[in-house]
Amino acid sequence: MNAQPPRIHSATFDPIPRDATPLVVFDLDGTLVDTAPDLTGALNYCLAEAGLPSLDVDAVRPHAGRGARAILQLGFSAAGITADETCLTNQLPRFLDRYNAHIADASMPFSGAVDALERLRGAGFKLAICTNKMEALARRLLVELQIAGYFSAICGSDTFAGRKPDPVHLLGTVSLAGGSAPVSIMVGDTDTDMEAARRAGLRSVLVDFGYDPCPAAHEKADLVVSRFSEIDASTLLRLIETVSAD
């Protein structure tokens, strides 16, 4: 956890409404759930169909939150092949069908994630999902893992006209969850998540154990944590209530 106090970009925030229920919006892949094993399985299925060598999950994990096209491009690139638009168009349905059928074979919440959801819900927080995964896949994954019931809204890349870092995605999620932006926090693992929070005027928490906690993400985050035990009601309420200059 950062030794320094949370850094709040106060100029972007409206006053906190009285009696507003705090909301925590979570990214999904690489934040709440380690989905890399099943994404790797779908990729390797496509690679095998194309007569190409498979990839190890450790090679895929840093790219697992970037979407199916990026994962396919990674697999073909590793075999020395540039996947053009025709190739991706042909492979994408195969990848998605395979992934949908095996979405929770090996994927599981990160250590402490479900306990954190329980703590926050018990403390009166609302919870939501804002992911660049397609909404139907996100819902299916959460249902399979038996944690869908924690969330007041589950919003994917196709739920709104834009996707993270477009603020319409995050602000739309806040609205559907019945939240208010001044008392909402984005928790994610990438610069895309932190930039979405910045553009939408939300406080942000970066989990540095995720797929792509790059230097830019660290710089934009209001708080950085290394385990879910660091995400509790008192910490997040202080983050909401603290308005200080950088």
Score class of each variant (00 low, 15 high):
P182L: 03
A70G: 04
R139E: 15
A153G: 09
L236R: 01
Y211L: 08
S180E: 15
T190P: 06
R18P: 12
P109T: 01
L96A: 02
R238S: 12
R121S: 13
A79S: 15
D84P: 05
A216C: 06
G210W: 13
Y99M: 08
I231K: 07
L32W: 02
L96G: 00
A20W: 05
E144H: 12
Q4S: 12
T35H: 06
I147M: 13
P167A: 06
N2M: 13
D38G: 00
A104F: 09
A128H: 04
T190S: 15
L176M: 13
D56K: 11
S244W: 04
H9V: 11
L28A: 10
S244A: 11
P167S: 07
R139D: 14
L202T: 04
L120W: 10
E195S: 12
A20S: 13
V25W: 00
A197L: 08
L43E: 04
D38A: 01
A70T: 15
A123F: 06
S184L: 07
T86D: 13
A221M: 13
P182N: 03
A216F: 12
S184K: 04
I240Y: 00
S234G: 07
T82I: 04
F95Y: 15
L55P: 00
L206G: 07
R203C: 13
A221N: 11
I8F: 02
D19Q: 10
K133T: 10
I16H: 00
Q146C: 06
T31K: 08
A177H: 12
N90C: 10
D191M: 10
F151S: 04
L237F: 12
S77D: 15
A200I: 08
E241C: 02
C130F: 01
Q4E: 15
N132S: 11
L206R: 10
G201D: 06
P109K: 01
F160C: 11
K220W: 13
G51A: 07
S244Q: 13
G65D: 05
L237Q: 15
D58H: 01
D14R: 11
C87L: 14
G178A: 07
Y45R: 09
R94N: 09
V57C: 04
D84L: 05
G172E: 11
A161N: 03
D115R: 13
D166Y: 10
P5W: 08
G112P: 04
A221H: 00
D115V: 12
H102Q: 14
T86M: 11
L43F: 00
R198F: 10
T40C: 14
G51E: 10
G124R: 06
S229F: 07
D246N: 07
D14P: 03
Q4T: 14
A59W: 08
P53I: 14
A104D: 12
R227T: 15
G188V: 13
S157R: 08
T31P: 02
F76I: 04
C87F: 03
L74K: 04
